[in-house]
């Protein structure tokens, strides 16, 4: 599904190098988790995959189902099936959440040459999905993320993911800011999307999310590299002992 090879990334306007040769392969239907200390480059990796400006790829590549991602515009990556749930979802004053969702869903359908959803079809779908995530009608009417609580923003990300039905989902610390019940809701939302060959890359600091969303593979990122890869037990090790041993021992 997603193959990242020897990815080196620096800031475009500064000499700061952030990613120093990331290698990662997520197979179809797999769930991978990335853990790692603050500032190790996890969000940067997700932004570069999604196509955010401000970063320069100096070496390496990333492909989604064989297609070279890094040359595409962000919207083309989305249409190709990539989705990033932001660590810090962006507020867009003046654009209603519902308008935003409908624009996004139909833009993707259009670019894939599929028929757009009618207003009625869209409403039915969004109401249904919002209900399972306990997102009320008021939140759908308000401007995108404006005045949403931290947890509401994260649930809104998952709603977007549920509406867009991407093939490759990257979740950047979707669990942070969620209360226990919201975490379950979000995990259920994610689990509902599992299967059908859909893959996930879950960035998190805590084991508790992984209790709900069981990963197949766990990676540890430090200083811009994946320094260790293992099974679910690796997350438990981090939870128990922190990163000190792993950082000292390497892979």
């Amino acid at each position: 599904m997603l193959t990242i090879s020897n990815l080196h990334v620096k800031l475009e306007d500064e000499d700061k190098v952030i990613l120093r040769g990331v290698n990662l392969t997520v197979g179809a239907g797999e769930v991978h988790a990335i853990m790692g200390p603050n500032g190790s480059g996890k969000s940067t990796l997700s932004y570069v995959l999604a196509g955010r400006e401000g970063y320069a790829v100096t070496e390496g590549s990333a492909t989604l189902e064989g297609e070279e991602l890094l040359a595409m515009e962000p919207e083309a990556r989305a249409a190709a099936g990539l989705f990033l749930a932001f660590q810090y979802p962006v507020e867009i004053p003046g654009v209603g959440n519902m308008t935003f969702l409908r624009t996004a869903v139909n833009a993707q359908k259009k670019s894939r040459g599929e028929p757009e959803l009618s207003a009625a079809e869209f409403l039915k779908l969004v109401r249904e999905k919002a209900k399972t995530l306990k997102i009320d009608a008021d939140m759908l009417k308000r401007p995108v993320n404006v005045g949403f609580s931290g947890g509401e923003k994260k649930r809104n990300e998952i709603l977007q993911m549920a509406m867009l039905e991407p093939r490759m989902c990257i979740l950047d610390e979707t669990d942070s800011g969620l209360d226990v019940d919201a975490m379950k809701l979000v995990a259920e939302g994610v689990n509902a999307l599992r299967g059908a060959g859909r893959s996930f890359l879950v960035i998190t600091h805590y084991q508790r999310l992984l209790d709900h969303i069981k990963p197949d593979v766990v990676h540890i990122m430090a200083a811009g590299q994946i320094i260790r890869t293992g099974g679910p037990e690796l997350a438990l090790e981090v939870e128990a002992n922190g990163y000190a041993d792993i950082l000292a021992g390497g892979n």
Binding site: E75, T103, Q160
Partner: peptide, 23 residues
């Protein structure tokens, strides 16, 4: 226009119109 908001929209598949919204 806010670049971060624009990227957020793009990341959801909404294209950046070529002419009127220059980078």
């Amino acid at each position: 226009i806010d670049e971060t908001a624009l990227f957020y929209l793009q990341s959801r598949g909404v294209p950046r119109p070529t002419k009127p919204w220059p980078k």
